[in-house]
Computed example of a mutant assay.
Amino acid sequence: MSQANILVVFYSRHGSVAAMAKHIARGVQKVPNAHAVIRQLPEASFSHEQTSPALPEDGYPYCEVEDFAACDGLAIGSPSYFGSMAAPVKLMLDQTSPIWMSGQLADKPACGFASASTMHGGHEMTIQSMMIPLLHHGMIWAGLPYKNKDLIHTATGGTPYGVTHFAPHTQYTGLSDEEIALCEAQGQRIAELATKLKKH
């Protein structure tokens, strides 16, 4: 069986979403024949133009539309800005129109992850905002089922829509044990679904 490539793409302002992406990728790697491809998104201006340099100074390579086209499954992450995805994530999704026209993401699994600085800062709405354009692409949304017991016991991040992180401080101070476990469960689930769907 050929390898299933899972694109883990994110924008992170203070490090929380980047940390989540790493643990989601670890969950992907637990699945035989699955490989995590991690990509970050650059800053964007309010005029919807990229303002970051062409190459990142550190971290992962910047995401390109071709990364979306080549994936067999997708995990997309963003901090919450007033209950919605950050501008760099929206800008990237807006650029995927050519592969929407050709249906290249149809019937592939997708999930979302998010971080907010308050407990009621829009965790679930942020994930839903990323979900909508991916449903237009024909992707199959994969939330986080309650068979993951950490989802029941967490006092920080969670949600059945997708894994989240509660980040009460501007500076990244680390994920909770439950958040780490849920990130890895989310990555494992999207990889398992992608490998199953790729067989057919």
Rank of each mutant, 00 (worst) to 15 (best):
M1R: 10
M1E: 09
A4D: 07
N5V: 05
I6C: 03
V9F: 07
F10Q: 04
Y11G: 05
R13W: 08
H14T: 15
S16I: 03
V17D: 03
A18F: 09
A19F: 06
M20W: 05
A21R: 01
K22R: 15
H23R: 14
H23P: 12
I24Q: 03
I24D: 07
I24N: 06
A25R: 07
Q29R: 15
Q29D: 15
K30N: 12
V31Y: 03
V31G: 05
V31A: 01
V31D: 02
A34W: 07
A36H: 00
V37T: 11
P42C: 09
F46M: 15
E49I: 15
Q50P: 13
T51L: 14
S52N: 13
A54T: 11
E57W: 08
E57F: 08
G59D: 07
P61M: 04
C63M: 12
C63W: 07
E64Y: 04
D67H: 08
A75Q: 00
I76N: 00
I76T: 03
S78I: 03
P79E: 06
S80G: 09
S80K: 02
S80F: 00
Y81Q: 11
M85I: 08
A86W: 10
A86H: 15
A86L: 10
V89R: 04
L91F: 10
D94W: 05
D94V: 01
Q95K: 10
P98I: 01
I99N: 06
M101Q: 15
S102Y: 10
S102W: 11
Q104P: 08
L105S: 09
K108D: 03
A110K: 07
C111L: 04
F113Y: 05
S115Q: 08
S115T: 12
M119P: 00
M119D: 02
H120P: 00
H123R: 01
E124K: 03
S129M: 09
M130P: 08
M131R: 15
P133S: 08
P133W: 12
L134N: 05
G138R: 04
G138Y: 09
G143P: 05
P145H: 06
P145S: 13
K147W: 14
N148S: 11
H153L: 10
T154S: 10
T156D: 15
G157A: 11
G158Y: 06
T159E: 02
P160A: 14
G162T: 02
V163Y: 04
T164R: 04
T164F: 00
H165C: 04
F166Y: 13
P168Q: 11
Y172Q: 09
T173A: 13
L175K: 13
D177A: 15
L182S: 03
I190K: 00
E192N: 05
A194H: 00
K196I: 14
L197Y: 10
K198Y: 03
H200Q: 11
H200A: 12
